[in-house]
């Protein structure tokens, strides 16, 4: 196992530490790095201009997560309700697009949404004669792209607890007088929350740091955190600020992951505590 750990240390830990260190230096006059200690890069992250981009990224990622979870849960529920022998087939086809290239899946939406794309064609076919609607290069297009790209994972994550659910639990709830809606709200949903949480965290984390989707579907000027980082490194040549932005991104991610771990821990802790009581 040693070679692997050396590899990870040399090519992940050290470079990431380097980026962290970079964030504390000044930008050189000609774009290089001036090795004097400063905190101003982090100060700049909270500048209204950049803080706004963080908020916008969080809003877009949050919306995409919400939509993906609603659609993904419904799909997983429908798959879990299908006859047993069909379930692996549906699941396979739900996940299949996930295995085709991310760029291509995103590109497919350019084809759909552009001014002379399929949707415009459809509108024309239904008798629409006005200006083609501008759908590409909008926030909506970015959200659609994110939902499309990450939906298969949400379906997979939600299907796992749904398929393990004992169908007699829902029957028991009905038997005790609950309607189908109440049964869903009070029995099925609470028991499948772990899958929803796993799917949601995945979509949110991958969306908020996304670079490709905003670049392709949001247009050249559209910026989320990932694009901002890209610009600092490849166009503005302000590596220290780019590094500070990257660290802020990591911090947000860690916060989300920790929140999830904490919630899971507390649930497990409650169970363990109560178990101790049962033994005593």
């Amino acid at each position: 196992m040693a070679p692997a750990l050396v590899w990870l240390t040399a090519l992940m830990v050290v470079p990431c530490a380097l980026v962290l260190a970079l964030a504390f230096f000044r930008r050189g006059i000609y774009g290089g790095i001036d090795y004097t200690f400063t905190l101003e890069n982090f100060g700049l992250v909270f500048d209204p201009l950049y803080a706004g981009i963080f908020l916008k990224s969080a809003r877009i990622a949050g919306t995409a997560t919400l939509i993906a979870v609603v659609i993904g849960y419904a799909a997983a529920y429908a798959i879990a309700a299908a006859p047993r022998r069909w379930q692996p087939v549906f699941l396979f086809f739900a996940v299949l697009p996930f295995w085709s290239n991310y760029l291509i899946r995103t590109y497919a939406w350019i084809v759909l949404l552009n001014r002379e794309g399929l949707i415009t064609q459809l509108l024309r076919w239904f008798g629409y004669t006005g200006e083609p609607p501008s759908m590409l290069y909008t926030e909506g297009a970015v959200i659609a792209g994110l939902v499309y790209n990450y939906l298969p994972f949400v379906i997979l994550a939600c299907y796992a607890p749904l398929s393990r659910l004992n169908p007699e639990l829902a029957e028991a709830s009905r038997d005790l007088g609950a309607s189908a809606a109440t049964t869903f709200r009070r029995v099925i949903l609470p028991l499948t929350v772990p899958g929803i949480a796993a799917g949601a965290v995945f979509v949110f984390v991958l969306s908020i740091g996304n670079f490709v989707t905003p670049a392709l579907l949001g247009g050249g000027r559209f910026q989320m955190i990932g694009n901002l980082v890209y610009d600092q490194f490849l166009t503005a040549n302000d590596w220290p600020f780019g590094a500070a932005l990257a660290m802020a991104l990591i911090a947000i991610m860690l916060l989300v992951l920790m929140a999830q771990a904490l919630a899971a821990d507390r649930a497990a802790g409650r169970a363990a505590e109560a178990n101790g009581g049962a033994d005593g």
Binding site: N166, E168, L169, E171, A172, S173, R174, D175, L176, G177, A178, S179, V187, L191
Partner: peptide
């Protein structure tokens, strides 16, 4: 859910 009949499930089906 509209019957005055209740079932005790074989698996117990406790929530």
């Amino acid at each position: 859910n509209k019957r005055p009949v209740n079932l005790m499930f074989q698996s117990y089906a406790l929530f």
